[in-house]
Design a protein around this nucleic acid. Structure first.
Length: 952
RNA sequence: GCGAGCGUGGCGGAACUGGCAGACGCGCCAGCUUUAGGAGCUGGUGCCCUUCGGGGUGUGGGGGUUCGAGUCCCCCCGCUCGCACCA
């Protein structure tokens, strides 16, 4: 962008001058350690005495992944928001901790290594360097000493250490908290606790005891069906798989296959993760998403004895135990072992042909089951989905007894019963469940309504409330009463009990990748896992040459081979773990990407500590907070800003780890993040030509309402900024043309922090002009001299100043930066008038103006502050305070309405009584004309606002 | 299908517990200053009508509560996001 005709005043606030000022202040902040946030003790405590009297404030951005393509203008929105808030609070008497680190393990650098052979560490470090430069250019006031990266061994050492804590813990349901596994062993040995299944502790062999203990751990190995993604060469957590059955990262197909994997027992925390949402200041949609993901259901377990198998029962979970009299058949998930146990040898006489399955005419029940299982196994989740609601299944030749009414009901297997939810078995009640209804119709099974639908009901299954029918002793009771009654009956008769089930599954924690944290686990000759002692941490990644997963065939047959398996001299290791040197095999998987981001906020507090995760004193200082209502905060981070896409991944995992650490006494708050704000997304215009291909957005011209690329018309849409839509806009472009203060101000001015909005480079000039005018009001553009006067400001300007201060303070506190900026624009416009009239700007206004602008556009504010004669940075200057006396208006303008329509505006003294206001209003010409010839039935006076005459 | 959120000028967006709709900015219009335009200054700008006093109308649509509704209630339309055979 070129300047006008070569005669630009020498000291005009242009992009060039802005860049000069910005670099100068970024250098000074760094040299003067301006944003070093002192800890109360320890190596980072220098300068704490200066802030000891302040309350702490912990401001946090979601941990960024250092991407290779660099930042676009959408990324810094949240970072700028937290920086503005942090800078404001620093000027408002808080000791503010604000740091930025890098969540640097992850697939992109590893995929790049697979393609090019460049070590992921090299890629990662380059990316971090680039990102640090970009963030520095934004003028963010981070404490640089705390810039950790998850890929650094001194960091992941503690990630591994936390894993050991999890491995060495179990969940005590009686105390409702995690406890050290040694407590469990002690209780077994003392006989104060007996194993919940199997034989007594005393009767067990050493290996059996270890296996038993391992089954209690919060981190445990399980052979289970997992989400296997051949294209990525790894398994994925449920949270990482899309509803379409593809990987969230890369969108590759995902298959179910059994593998032995590390699991973390997050389900033990389901209830607490749910309950504690109530005390968090989080957006309601995020809480709802977490609640849905945890998926708590209350209901009952009911046992249906299997006929002809004494002592064998099918335990089902139902949320509608009141409908048990309407259970006319049962469905088991095809995978259940129980199926093999109870499948009949031959079909009972009279078995309808369609119940035997469609996979062969004269097969035995066992063959029909096998055929159906095969059929289910060939289906991916996508294919099952595509089949819609068509119900399939096979009768297994066995019957169960409905304990409520003694009826004999057939047992089916069908894929609409999920092995992983509840008990994997259901009682089918077609009258009150549409899925069961559909299945019943398909297989000609009886349908019995047990809730009376309203007379006008013409649907199939009826899910609403109503009196029970066909239900013996429940008849006449409404759903809630019937539930209570039947649960009581089930418990009395031993046929079942009230219970709670969750949709949440344990967290699959193994990845068959290289670029992640190695597990601090080895296997002994019995094949059982052994935790390495703390003294052997960190377990560092071995150097390997070939990063490719050995087999990347895009099918469901191939088994994964983790890259670490190829580090031969690393895999096998001789260690003395207390009983002499022995040979062990290392765990070959690495931890998922989420591990490092589960606790990084704790490491910000005490990043150099080599002896502890975080010093307890420092942890308490930064994490123990007070809510707005004066009560202790549940979470330690005062403000956490990040994208909504982490609603059930990072935010749930981090809460889980934090609660474990809390139970084990390692942190002092039950929750990590008290207040959460989701920043919106910035979208940008993208253009497609007549073939539907994207064209380079920066080269599109607009003529009135139409858009052209190389002379041809193109169509505009708005979407994610990036290469694929050819609409990349980088912060660097904006720095160059306007400066980073302008970018910061523009991003904050575009709208509220939590709203998504379209980027519009054309609009930037507005905020740039503001900075330019502000500059010109203080600095003579031709001479560079300040033109500030020590004369008092005129009364009206002074009042406006103080009204602005009051408004800006409130808006900043509220994260309403867009309206704060609008107020500053107004004050600056007033200041421009004053300068035009008097030739000088009153210091009384200019100084607070600079301070108020400082959180938003810190470089220009510092520069003005310095030119106003100050020698120190304004980062710790007190934020201006409004004089309450000057906020009181002497005269107010109020609207006069007649029948709700504004007919006039009058000025009255602020102290005017209602009667005075009414009299003044009636005296107005317009009003009296409107009221002429009408009777006033009612007069409403809203003090300071309006008066409304209602005519009869 | 279920759940949540959102619909305000040409555009981004303001509007506290119901109280003057459209703050502020972009754009647009007029003028000034400059000068060959393009980041300057001043004023104006929801829409329609106007005798220039003003009048009508207006927050997705329809209804309701109220002296008064962008805001509260009911129905409908549209868009966005999340979940989806969870018993």
């Amino acid at each position: 962008m070129s300047e006008r005709g070569g005669d630009v005043p020498k000291f005009r606030y242009t992009a060039a001058l802005a860049n000069e000022i910005e670099t100068k202040w970024q250098d000074r902040w760094e040299a003067e350690r301006t944003f070093w946030a002192p800890n109360p003790t320890g190596p980072l405590s220098e300068g704490f005495d200066k802030v000891a009297g302040r309350r702490k404030l912990f401001v946090l951005d979601m941990f960024p992944y250092p991407s290779g393509v660099g930042l676009h203008v959408g990324h810094p929105l949240g970072y700028i928001g937290t920086d503005v808030y942090a800078r404001f609070k620093r000027m408002a008497d808080r000791n503010v901790l604000h740091a930025m680190g890098y969540d640097a393990f992850g697939l992109p650098a590893e995929q790049y290594a697979v393609q090019t052979g460049q070590h992921p560490r090299v890629t990662t470090e380059q990316n971090i360097t680039t990102m640090k430069q970009q963030l520095r250019a934004l003028g963010l006031g981070h404490d640089p000493r705390r810039a950790i990266a998850t890929t650094d061994a001194p960091y992941y050492r503690w990630t591994q250490w936390i894993f050991l804590q999890i491995f060495n813990s179990w969940y005590d349901n009686d105390q409702d908290r995690a406890r050290p596994i040694t407590d469990l062993v002690a209780e077994f040995e003392a006989g104060t606790r007996t194993p919940s299944e199997g034989r007594a502790w005393a009767e067990l062999e050493e290996l059996e005891r270890r296996t038993l203990i391992d089954s209690y751990r919060l981190a445990y190995l399980e052979e289970a069906p997992v989400n296997w993604c051949p294209a990525l060469g790894t398994v994925l957590a449920n949270e990482e798989v899309t509803p379409e059955g593809r990987s969230e990262r890369g969108n590759y197909p995902v298959y179910k296959r059994p593998l032995r994997q590390w699991m973390l027992r997050i389900t033990a925390y389901a209830e607490r993760l749910l309950d504690d949402l109530d005390v968090l200041d989080w957006p309601e949609p995020i809480k709802i998403q977490q609640r849905n993901w945890i998926g708590r259901s209350t209901g009952a377990d009911i046992v249906f004895p299997v006929e002809g198998h004494s002592g064998v029962g099918i335990r089902v979970f139902t949320t509608r135990p009141d409908t048990v009299f309407g259970a006319t058949y049962m469905v088991l998930a095809p995978e259940l072992d129980l199926v093999d146990e109870i499948v009949a040898n031959e079909w009972p006489s009279g078995t309808p042909a369609e119940w035997r399955g469609t996979f062969g005419a004269d097969v035995s029940p066992a063959e029909a089951v096998a055929a159906y299982r095969n059929y289910v196994a060939t289906k991916t989740d996508v294919e099952r989905q595509a089949e819609g609601k068509e119900k399939t299944g096979v009768f297994i030749g066995a019957f169960a007894t409905n304990a409520a009414n003694g009826e004999s009901i057939p047992i089916f297997i069908a894929d609409y019963a999920l092995a992983t939810y509840g008990t994997g078995a259901i009682m089918a009640v077609p009258g009150q469940d549409q899925r069961d209804w559909d299945f019943a119709e398909e297989f000609k099974l009886p349908i019995v309504r047990t809730v009376e639908p309203p007379p006008d009901f013409d649907g199939e299954a009826y899910l609403g409330d109503g009196p029970a029918i066909n239900s013996g002793f429940l008849d006449g009771l409404h759903v809630d009463e019937a539930k209570e009654r039947i649960i009581a009956w089930l418990e009395e008769t031993g046929n079942g009990r009230g219970t709670v089930t969750y949709k949440l599954r344990d967290w699959l924690f193994s990845r068959q990748r290289y670029w992640g944290e190695p597990f601090p686990i080895v296997y002994d000759d019995a094949g059982l896992p052994v935790a390495l002692p703390e003294s052997m941490l960190p377990v560092t990644l071995p150097e390997i040459a070939d990063f490719e997963p050995r087999i990347v065939a895009d099918d469901e047959e191939t088994l994964p081979e983790p890259p670490l398996a190829r580090a031969d001299d690393w895999v096998t290791v001789e260690l003395d773990l207390g009983d002499g040197p022995k040979t062990y095999l290392r765990e070959l998987n690495t931890m998922p990407n989420w591990a490092g981001s589960c606790w990084y906020y704790l490491r910000y507090l005490d990043p150099t500590n080599e002896n502890e995760l975080v010093s307890p004193e420092i942890e308490r200082y930064w994490m123990q907070g007070v809510r707005a209502d004066g009560m202790p905060a549940a979470g330690g981070v005062d403000l956490y800003v990040g994208g909504v896409e982490h609603a059930v991944l990072h935010l749930l995992y981090a809460r889980f780890w934090h609660k474990i650490l809390y139970d084990l006494g390692r942190v002092s708050t039950p929750e990590p993040f008290q207040r959460l704000v989701n920043q919106g997304y910035i979208q940008a215009a993208a253009y497609t030509d007549e073939r539907g291909f994207y064209v380079e957005a920066s080269q599109v011209e607009q003529r009135s309402d139409e858009f052209f690329f190389e002379g041809k018309p193109v169509t505009r849409e708005f979407g994610k900024i990036g290469k694929s839509l050819k609409n990349m806009i980088t912060p660097d472009d904006i720095f160059e043309n306007f400066g980073s203060d302008t970018l910061r101000l523009y991003e904050m001015f575009m709208g509220p922090l939590d709203a998504s909005r379209p980027w519009s480079t054309n609009d930037i000039v507005g905020v740039h002009r503001f900075l330019q005018r502000l500059w010109r009001n203080v600095v003579d553009e031709d001479t560079g001299d300040t033109r500030v006067s020590d004369e008092p400001a005129d009364e009206e300007t002074r009042r406006r100043l103080h009204r602005t201060i009051a408004a800006v303070r409130a808006d900043m506190d509220d994260l309403s930066f867009n309206t704060a900026i609008a107020r500053l624009f107004e004050l600056n416009n007033r200041l421009t008038e004053v300068v035009a009239d008097t030739g000088t700007a009153p210091r009384e206004v200019v100084e607070p103006m600079a301070l108020m602008v400082a959180p938003l556009a810190p470089h220009i504010a510092e520069e003005l502050w310095e030119r106003l004669g100050q020698s120190a940075s304004l980062a710790f200057e007190p934020f201006p305070e409004a004089d309450p006396v000057l906020l009181v208006e002497e005269e107010v303008e109020i609207a006069v309405q007649v029948n709700g329509k504004v007919r006039a505006r009058i000025k009255v003294p602020a102290s005017a009584t209602e009667a005075d206001v009414e009299t003044a209003a009636r005296a107005d010409e317009q009003v009296s004309a409107q009221l002429d010839g009408k009777t006033v039935a009612k007069v409403v006076v809203v003090p300071g606002r309006l008066v409304n005459f209602v005519t009869g």
